[in-house]
Amino acid sequence: MKTEVIEKDDQYVLNHCTKYLARESRDARHDFGQYPPGDDRAAICEAWRFPVVDAHWDGVSAASSYPYNDVTFVHDGRRTTPSSVAVLGTFGPLHSPVPLRPLAFAGEPTGFWAVTVRVPKGQVHTYKFAVDGAYVLDPVNPQRAVLDNGEPWSRFFTDACTVPLSFSRAERDLLGRLVRHLLPFRLDENRRFIRGVYESLDRAGRDEEFPLAYQLDDEVGTVNYIDKLIARQEQHNADDYHTCLKIIGEILRSRFGGLDPETAPPEMFADLYRQMETEKVDGWDYSRYGSPRYFLLLLRRHAMTGAFVHPKHGGNSGAAGWMYLESRFRDARDATLFDWRRALESPLGHNTDYRG
Rank of each mutant, 00 (worst) to 15 (best):
R330E: 07
E262S: 15
Q34L: 00
F185C: 06
L14V: 07
M323H: 06
H56K: 00
G122L: 07
R78S: 11
H236E: 10
F185L: 12
I251D: 01
V74S: 07
T110Y: 03
K228I: 06
Y68Q: 04
T72C: 10
E267V: 10
R79I: 06
A319E: 09
R144D: 03
V136E: 15
S61D: 13
R288P: 02
A238Q: 07
N237V: 04
Q143C: 07
L88G: 00
H75T: 05
A160F: 12
D271F: 06
A63V: 15
N149A: 12
D240Q: 04
V52M: 00
V87H: 02
V163D: 01
L201G: 08
A134K: 15
D353R: 15
K280L: 11
Y241T: 05
Q275G: 05
S287W: 02
G196L: 01
D173V: 14
V163P: 00
L178T: 13
F167D: 00
Q143H: 05
G315D: 10
E208N: 06
T3P: 03
H181E: 15
L100C: 10
P139L: 11
V179L: 06
R78W: 08
L100K: 07
Y286V: 13
G306T: 08
R333C: 09
D285S: 12
K280P: 03
G349F: 08
G258M: 03
H313Y: 15
E151I: 12
P120A: 03
K8V: 06
E189I: 14
K128M: 04
T126A: 10
T3S: 10
L296T: 13
P211N: 08
G133Y: 05
Y294R: 15
Y135M: 14
G77W: 07
R232G: 05
